[in-house]
């Protein structure tokens, strides 16, 4: 079977299109690269949507933790503590079993025990908590002069937030946020190892990599392929976030642009 044929059969296998059965023996390199790459669709799906929704909630959480209102501050702090203080792996398990039992009471929750929605919600809450803490830190370090200048211009309330505080917060938080984004994508590999079932063997990249490692009993081929994909993904994220970083800092002299320092992190 030619490699092109393999790509046609397995390129979208993670979504359920193409060949129904996974290859069983005589695994070729092409099959491994194609299937693991097809699994990457899920990693990207989880990462992109969790980041997008998480960003909105994180802004609210960061502001909430810095709020004057005691109730708002306490609840935001507790939310952040809850999700940053416990392992994501346990959160996935807990979320899955929670959705399973909710399903018995209301048909509304039918889709929640499937990975595409349930795992996405857990990831979304998790990344919102981590990002919220980053945004809170950035809010605390907004230069006093910036806010005073805004006051002097007569900006108050929403327009002060929209024009001064929020852009400055983003600018300060961006390098740390980039790291968070990178390791959110790494964290997406946990989904199918934590209760959420891979229905009809539609899994993510790590799911297929470990499938091949189990079948061939040779970890030295699938895992480096997976690592290669992730390094590629990381480079893409760095490029996109780097462009945004330059945009956020475009009013500053070149030398003042905070360097994007890459710190790879582990499982949370």
């Amino acid at each position: 079977m030619s490699c092109l044929q393999t790509i046609q059969d397995y390129g979208l296998r993670a979504l359920g299109y193409g060949e129904r059965l996974l290859p069983r023996d005589g695994f070729t390199l092409c099959e491994q690269v194609t299937l693991i790459g097809s699994g990457m669709i899920w990693n990207i799906y989880f990462g992109v949507f969790a980041l997008a929704f998480g960003f909105l909630l994180a802004t609210a959480l960061g502001l909430g933790k810095a709020s004057q209102n005691r109730f708002v501050r306490k609840s935001a702090s507790w939310f952040i503590f809850l999700f940053r203080g416990s392992p994501l792996f346990i959160q996935f398990f807990f979320g899955y079993f929670l959705f399973l039992s909710l399903k018995q009471y209301a048909p509304l929750f039918d889709n929640f025990s499937a990975a595409w929605l349930g795992a996405l919600i857990v990831l979304f809450l998790n990344t919102a908590a981590y990002t919220g803490e980053i945004f809170y830190g950035a809010l605390q370090s907004i230069p006093k002069g910036d806010v005073e200048a805004a006051d002097a211009y007569g900006l108050t309330g929403w327009s002060r937030f929209r024009r001064v505080i929020w852009p400055t917060m983003l600018r300060l938080a961006w390098p740390a946020y980039t790291n968070e984004a990178i390791f959110l994508f790494h964290a997406t590999t946990l989904v199918f190892f934590s209760g959420f079932p891979a229905r009809q063997q539609r899994g993510d990249a790590l799911y297929y990599a470990s499938y091949f490692a189990d079948k061939t009993f040779n970890p030295f081929i699938p895992y480096p392929i997976l690592a290669g994909y992730f390094i590629l993904l990381t480079l893409v994220i760095i490029t996109i976030f780097g462009a945004v970083n330059r945009h956020l800092n475009r009013h500053l002299p070149r030398t003042d642009t905070p360097k994007m320092r890459l710190r790879f992190n582990l499982i949370r």
Binding site: F183, H186, A187, T189, L190, F193, L206, A209, S210, A213, P219, Y223, L226, A227, F230, I231, F264, L266, I267
Partner: peptide
């Protein structure tokens, strides 16, 4: 070790 994705490393 720092560049390779997390659990993949453990499984590997």
């Amino acid at each position: 070790v720092r560049g390779v994705p997390d659990i993949a490393f453990f499984l590997f």
